[in-house]
Each structure stands twice: as C-alpha cells, then as structure tokens.
Design a protein around this nucleic acid. Sequence first.
DNA 1: TTAATGATTTAACACAACCTTAACATTTTC
DNA 2: GAAAATGTTAAGGTTGTGTTAAATCATTAA
Lengths: 223, 223
Amino acid sequence: MSYRILLVDDEPDILEILGYNLKKEGYEVFMAEDGLQAIVQAKKHKPHLIVMDVMMPNMDGIEACIKIRETPELSKTIITFLSARSEDYSQISGLNAGADDYLTKPVRPRVLLSKVKSLLRRLEDISTEKPQVFKDITIDPNKYKVLKGGVEIKFAKKEFKLLQLLFSNIGKVFTRDEIMNTIWGTDVFVGDRTIDVHIRKLREKLGNNVIETIKGVGYRLSE
Amino acid sequence: MSYRILLVDDEPDILEILGYNLKKEGYEVFMAEDGLQAIVQAKKHKPHLIVMDVMMPNMDGIEACIKIRETPELSKTIITFLSARSEDYSQISGLNAGADDYLTKPVRPRVLLSKVKSLLRRLEDISTEKPQVFKDITIDPNKYKVLKGGVEIKFAKKEFKLLQLLFSNIGKVFTRDEIMNTIWGTDVFVGDRTIDVHIRKLREKLGNNVIETIKGVGYRLSE
DNA sequence: TTAATGATTTAACACAACCTTAACATTTTC
DNA sequence: GAAAATGTTAAGGTTGTGTTAAATCATTAA
C-alpha cells in the first residue's frame, strides 16, 4: 500500500510542482487550496501526512491543524507546515497547534521528498501498536479494523475502544471503573447500563464465548 | 489517576511545546529548568516519569539523575534523558547514572508521546500482582483466574477474595476475625456460618485437602 | 440549512448468580 | 457426654447484569 499525502497551499503552481514530484515517487497525492478544503479532504482520504501552508485564505493552516487534530480518526496523521523563512512566530504556534514539523519556503522538491520520507518512516515506528490476536479475532488499532475468521467486522467508535481495551491485556479483568475511565474519562457521567449495552454489541458481533462477565468485578476476554 | 511527568530543560520553548503535548494527552505535567529545580520538583510531586535534558546550567542531568536515584521514595521513577544526537558519550554515562532510556534532540512531540506511553506501560507491568502458586493451584488476581491442574475453576467474588486472602500468606492461619475484616470490612455484620459456607464452596471446588481448619483459631492452606 | 442515518445513552424490566441465613448435623474439646 | 465450634444443606432475598426499545445525540448527505 502506498502512503497518502495531502498537499495544502493556496498557490496552484506550488501544488502542481510538489504534487508532481511526490506522485513520481509513488505517493498518492491529494490537494486542497485552503484550510476548509484541507479538512474535507483529510476526512475523506485519511492521509498519512499533510503538508500545509500556514498562510491561506478562508482558514489558515494553524486553525485547520487544530480542527484536524480534534478528529479522532486522524489523530495519527502527521502534519507539517510550510512557512516563509522569517515567520518564526508561526513555527512556534504551529507546533503548539499539534504540528509535527515544518519546512521553510521556498521548498525544494528534493528537500521535501527527503523530509517526507523521514516523516513517514517515523509513522512506521510509531504505529507500533501491533495487531492483537485472540482466538480467531484480530484487532488492528492502526487500521481501525477487526477481523473474525478472516472476515472484517465493523465496530462503532466506542465499541472499538472497548474492544481495544479488553485486547490490551488479554485475559485481564477490567472493572467497570477502569472501563469507565478509559472509554468515557473521569468527568463524564453515563449510566450503569451503558457499559452492558456496549458489551452486548460486542457479543452480538463476536459471539458469546469471547467476553466473559465476572459478576461484581468486571469483564475479560475468556480463554 | 493520571500519570505525573516532570520535564526538565533549560529552554523554556521546549518545555512549553512538550508540556503542551503531554498535557493534551491527559498527563499531569511539572517543569524545571535545571538539575537543582528538578530535584526539588521531583521530591515534591513524585512523578512517575522524568524527561530531562543532559546539558543544563547549575546541575546537569547526569548529576541530578544520580541524586534522584539516591532518594528512596523516587526509586521507582523512570528517568529518560534528552541529548543532542552526537553526544554519544552522554547517552552512555546517562544510562550508567541510572537512566532508563534516552531520546535524541530535537524531539518530535509525537515521538515523545509514544515513548512516554511505552515507558509508563512498563510501570504498569511492574505494579501488577503476580500469580501465586500452591500445590497444583494457581491464582491470578489480575485475570481473576484460578487454575487447578491446568483447568480453570470459576469462583464468585467473595469466594475469590477469600481464596486470595489464604494465598496471600501460604500456610498462615487466618482467624475468623481477620477473614471478616478483610472480606466484609469492619462495619458489616454477617452471621458466623457465612464464613463456613464460603470455605465449603472453596473445598467443593478445590478438594478437601487444601484448606485446613484449625479449630478455635481459623483456616489455612495446609501443606 | 434540513433530513436522514447511525451511534450512543437511558430507562424499564427480566433474570440469574450470589450471598446470607437458619436449621440441623457432625466433629472436637474438655 | 455436654458444650463449643464447625460442617452441611436448601431456601429466600438481594444485587448485578442482560435485554430491549425508545430517546437523544452526532455525523453525513442532500
């Protein structure tokens, strides 16, 4: 599979030049001309890497970056800013906004390529949350994917998180409190039955012999 | 409970960027700008993890690390160094000083986060209760699991607690009072036969040669 | 924007496991 | 052999979980 890269800049010339070079290297390239488009494209294509200008009409790069960072499914996306050499300010606030790196304009295609390469290598290192296997079930946190007997089963966000928690320590009993704190956080109040309902959903999809109830204690993957 | 992290670096910008990212992930972050401050902050907040630059004014990271390691109450604290890429020397001597890991500067927030996560996971593993073994019986508090001859036997909550108590000190006689206080607490009143009934359940499941009655005193695991 | 779809939470009730008790039996101690 | 301590059994009562449907909330598409 090739990596997906989203280029964001308000100058079509730059998009074209950089895009051409990235495509030539085998990357899948998407483009956007402002922050708003960037967000739409990001959600649509789930790029591994976003290279984004800071100064843009409609919505600047910083703001777009913050919005993107708020999207859970894009949390692993690497964001790199392009900024004019002198705008040191933007570098700092860009990093504050959750960017991983920045490049100074004007960008040499050759420089961009080597940067892109090293950033994507980093992604490989980080996405080291290895797929977990239990019985005939495989859960891959990176791809947000669950296979049972080789067949993909779809899970909603909360369901997936819950499943991920149970898989994070196979066999361990997770108390309702632990589950609560992990999935909902400490300052959210949801009723007691909510957890059961989610457990039920998981059982519905995975079968009844996977998640075991320990009454008065919690739940675990049953070996 | 969230983890506490102490960041130590003499560059406020770095503190700010890394601190921001760690806080965003839900960690409690403290900061210090040199080794002396680091020691003060460490003693004050008992962080789970310290991320510390090597080169600093007043007292460098190596020395601070040694001092911290000498403090008994901080013995479990994980210490990670930050060092410029080329300073191989400091990496070696840092690890000699009792550091657990190191990162090379410049540090990408994303890299730090994944590192922090994996280091703290190490902490969790240490703190988990280890399975106890007696005769052909294994009890694993974490998984809430009891094996006899390799076969799992299920226990209800109170039963499990009682068994856990007996296993907590194999061979020791536990008086009815001790059992009462441990399983039911001091402000709950249950009849005298209740304990017997629970002991009976355990014997039913584990066989009669495991739990011994010392009449007038209590119960124990019999060798 | 609104509509429509899907995800999440709530509420009400059903159900089963668990715990405790009480009554009586058995064993141990003196 | 009587008293004291513990063992046994089965019957409620209690509690925690399962289930369902409907209500709310969030997201996507139109």
